[in-house]
């Protein structure tokens, strides 16, 4: 009897696991198809670039405050923590290198992408989801205007363009924060701080790789946000769930992609 009960529970568990795996695969497949369709419908986003510029304002310009303030604080913390460690080895004048490399290679693209997912990504999902729930997308379709070309593609390209710019501003503010703490507060030599940074940071290896990372994160976060909004059940609960999924999924995807990209860029894997 107990054996029968145990068997049926196990069977149920395997069935649930299989069903969830299939659902997840379906979602990934749908997301990929959606992504390709958006790329194919991107003509209008460039022909009528005003549409993309408008979205650049909402996704990029309105994210500036959170990006700049966070960058400043992250840089200041790096200055404090870096100084604490470096002074042990008498290398506190290398603080500029530590701050700049940490920001340009890793923290700039990654933290900016996480903040972008929380601020702009969630807003994109909620907006598209509500447009769907209130039949605005259906209305557009019935007016012979393709919502993928008119609504989705401009938002996608605005996200892809604004992400590396935001990451660059984050890094710049971070370096300034490190300078404030290291040079102005602690009193490290200003010339050493800047010259060591200038010598150690390589444009191609560090800056360009950081930009490539942020472009990839921009594509991932914006595509996830748009897909979740477009795929959201047209109810209040559905839109709320989609918004949460955008932040959670895109954060995880950013961190996972960061590992893969770092492995290829800085360890020569492949």
């Amino acid at each position: 009897m107990i054996c029968d009960w145990g068997g049926s529970v196990l069977k149920q568990a395997i069935t649930n696991l299989g069903s969830r795996t299939l659902d997840a695969l379906w979602t990934v497949g749908l997301a990929m198809r959606f992504f390709v369709t958006v790329l194919l419908h991107s003509g209008m986003a460039f022909r009528r670039f005003g549409l993309t510029i408008r979205e650049l304002y909402f996704t990029g310009v309105l994210s500036l405050i959170v990006i700049l303030v966070s960058g400043l604080f992250v840089g200041m913390v790096l200055g404090l923590q870096g100084y604490e460690t470096l002074q042990t080895y008498g290398a506190e004048e290398s603080l500029g290198i530590v701050v700049a490399l940490s920001l340009v290679r890793e923290l700039g693209p990654v933290v900016a992408a996480l903040l972008f997912a929380s601020r702009a990504g969630s807003a994109i999902t909620a907006e598209i989801g509500l447009m769907k729930a209130t039949e605005q997308l259906s209305a557009m379709e019935m007016m012979a205007v393709d919502p993928l070309a008119r609504v989705v593609a401009p938002r996608f390209w605005a996200g892809v363009i604004s992400m590396p710019l935001l990451a660059a501003l984050f890094s710049a503010m971070g370096v300034f924060g490190g300078y404030l703490v290291g040079v102005q507060l602690i009193g490290i030599d200003e010339g050493a701080f800047w010259s060591q940074m200038q010598n150690a940071v390589d444009f191609e290896r560090d800056v360009l790789n950081g930009v490539i990372k942020s472009v990839v994160f921009g594509i991932a976060v914006t595509a996830i946000a748009l897909f979740e909004g477009y795929d959201a059940p047209p109810t209040a609960e559905g839109v709320a769930g989609a918004t949460t999924r955008t932040v959670v999924t895109s954060s995880l995807v950013v961190l996972a992609l960061d590992f893969v990209l770092t492995a290829f860029m800085f360890r020569g894997i492949g």
Binding site: L130, T134, E135, Q136, A139, M140, E141, M142, M143, A144
Partner: peptide, 20 residues
């Protein structure tokens, strides 16, 4: 063809579906 036909159609949705 569907786009061509829809340009000759109008639709009023239940709650208007105005672009907010």
């Amino acid at each position: 063809g569907l786009c061509r036909l829809r340009r000759k159609m109008g639709m009023l949705f239940q709650f208007g579906a105005l672009f907010t």
